[in-house]
């Protein structure tokens, strides 16, 4: 009895000592941060001003980020998540973690704002949390909202809804690529990648968008979907890496 115990502990010891020589694994956490004019978003307070000079608050922000992918020097890529839903009223949606990233020299990260045509199909994500909140009705092209950004402007009782999506089946999702330098090797350890959405920039340059003209809805307005997409591509997203 004693002998076997000794043997077992010896073997266990051996294994653990082997472990010590083993590589440290790297888990990547993607954080989704939100700023307005550079400072962290505060919901439900009318403290923001857009380029058109309108004061506004933010009460609702829900959006989909898809195909979050790391690209390496040698041309291989690693899909971290197919679709991630972020809801400003639910902190648990502000990050996602990918465990045990393989060693490689990663040189860029890319993701889509919204869902591309292959994914933006009615009922494709029927069992996902976001299905009911983000669904986009058939008579308007079907699929899902990419983003719902809502609040009040000028005074507490005039509202704006900025809902983006595939109006009449057109694809207004866009890809964001950011160069990073991230070498995952045997002793790097865990890493955070922060994806920041600068909310005010949805309404500014190159296209200035006023709530007074478009607050009541743009779901059927292809021109506005395009303008907002262009603003989004220009300077809404930025990425930083914390090692």
């Amino acid at each position: 009895m004693k002998k076997t115990l000794l043997l077992i502990s010896a073997i266990a010891f051996l294994f653990t000592s082997c472990d010590k020589d083993k590589a440290i694994v790297t888990d990547i956490t993607i954080n989704f941060n939100h700023t307005v004019n550079g400072s962290e978003l505060m919901t439900n307070s009318m403290i923001y001003t857009n380029e058109a000079g309108e004061n506004y608050d933010i009460q609702t922000l829900k959006y989909l980020i898809s195909d979050i992918t790391l690209h390496s020097e040698n041309g291989s890529s690693l899909l971290l998540d197919e679709v991630h839903f972020i809801d400003i009223s639910d902190e648990s949606t502000f990050s996602l973690t990918y465990n045990e990233v393989p060693n490689n020299n990663y040189t860029s990260i890319s993701f889509d704002m919204g869902l591309d045509t292959a994914k933006n199909i009615s009922n494709k994500y029927v069992n996902d949390d976001f299905h009911t909140t983000m669904f986009w009705p058939e008579p308007n092209g079907g699929g899902y909202h990419y983003m719902k950004l809502e609040g009040a402007y000028n005074n507490d009782s005039t509202f704006y809804n900025t809902h983006t999506g595939g109006t009449m089946g057109a694809d207004y999702s866009f890809n964001h690529v950011e160069n990073i330098s991230l070498t995952v090797d045997n002793d790097l350890g865990d890493v955070s990648v922060n994806i920041n959405m600068e909310i005010n920039n949805w309404y500014n340059s190159p296209n200035q968008i006023e709530f007074s003209s478009y607050g009541m809805g743009i779901m059927m307005n292809m021109m506005m979907q395009m303008n907002i997409q262009m603003n989004g591509i220009t300077d809404v997203f930025s990425v930083t890496v914390d090692k």
Binding site: E150, A152, F159, N161, G215, M216
Partner: peptide, 9 residues
């Protein structure tokens, strides 16, 4: 009141 009631008033 919900901002989705955007035609309030």
């Amino acid at each position: 009141v919900d901002p989705l009631m955007k035609k309030l008033g």
